[in-house]
């Protein structure tokens, strides 16, 4: 099962030319690969019965009807939501880092596109904020509809990857633009100070938002697989470091993990979801994270 290609595999998505196509492929792949329907979420309003297809949520199997008809029947509910999803995409220069054929920024863009498509499929409103470190470059308010999603995708496709500074500051600036409460999906490498991120998240929670943090990391940042002498040029700033990577690898990984742990601990303490997204793994983690967070929010809102 591990070797079966998925539609949300970044390797596959990298071969697709248009971002929209990538978004659809990722989302529909997700729907077919998991027992989770993408088009119908949890709702109290029963709509109809239909035959079970792979990917349907097993919770919606109608056991009584199945016993009578000897067929697999699921119950469908009408979509009914006014959820606003704010995609805050960090496109600072550090997101240019790539040890694979695609960078963190590429992966994050695909993820944002897939999520906007998924939001649209779920009938939710989609908003987009493009940040570049501590700078906000674009803000698209949350709206519903196909045309709006196209607008979002266009913004994603044309976005530059540049800028420096703590991405938490970009998050904070983006939230200042939000005109309503919703689910904030922060897509970033989160290489800033954990305390700043926690502070931004705290403010966000205070304003009634839910937060899903998708931390996009390159495998090389996680494993630090470099051999002998390497000159590391900073993507943000102009300095560089010459060193024998193996000599500092343990210390680097310790620092890195400590940073990640502090970040995770801080954000989860604020009841925000935090998921690490290595760029060599399918987008599923991010998409299912969104679905789980959406369900939780809908449950809290009593629908």
């Amino acid at each position: 099962m591990e070797n079966v290609p998925r539609a949300s595999d970044p390797e596959l998505l990298a071969k697709l030319s248009r971002l929209e196509l990538r978004a659809r492929t990722a989302v529909e792949g997700l729907a077919g690969g998991r027992h989770q329907s993408a088009a119908f979420g949890a709702s109290n309003n029963f709509a109809q019965h239909r035959e079970y297809v792979p990917g349907d949520d097993l919770r919606y199997l109608d056991w009584k009807l199945m016993a009578r008809s000897e067929r697999d029947i699921v119950r469908q509910y009408e979509e009914e939501t006014d959820l606003a999803g704010f995609l805050v995409l960090d496109l600072s220069a550090s997101m240019r880092f790539a040890s694979l054929d695609w960078s963190k920024a590429d992966y994050a863009t695909w993820l944002a596109a897939a999520l906007s498509h998924l939001l649209q499929l779920q009938g939710d409103k989609v908003g987009l904020a493009l940040t570049h470190g501590d700078r906000l470059s674009e803000w698209i308010p949350a709206r519903r509809g196909e045309a709006h999603v196209q607008l979002v995708l266009q913004a994603l496709e044309g976005a530059a990857v540049e800028g420096e500074g703590d991405p938490a500051e970009g998050l904070r600036l983006a939230l200042a633009e939000a005109d309503r409460r919703g689910l904030v999906i922060w897509i970033s490498d989160c290489l800033g100070e954990p305390a700043a991120a926690v502070q931004a998240a705290s403010q966000l929670r205070h304003e009634g938002h839910d937060l899903l943090t998708l931390r996009v990391l390159d495998p090389a940042e996680i494993d630090f697989p470099y051999g002998r002498n390497t000159r590391f040029d900073a993507l943000e700033g102009s300095d560089h470091l010459k060193l024998e990577p193996r000599a500092v690898r343990d210390a680097y990984l310790a620092e890195f993990e400590a940073h990640g742990a502090e970040l995770r601990r801080g954000l989860r303490a604020l009841r925000g979801d935090f998921r690490r997204m290595p760029t060599d793994e399918p987008l599923d983690v991010g998409l299912t994270g969104y679905l789980a967070q959406r369900s939780a929010r809908l449950r809290r809102s009593g629908r």
């Binding site: 993507l235 010459k242 500092v248 680097y252």
Partner: peptide
Amino acid sequence: LNRQRYQRVDFGAMEFLRRAIRRTRRRV
């Protein structure tokens, strides 16, 4: 001479490297 031969990598997580170097400099 070995120290003069480097592969170049554009890297984002520089802060962790700086901290790692500070921690390991003497030992290395």
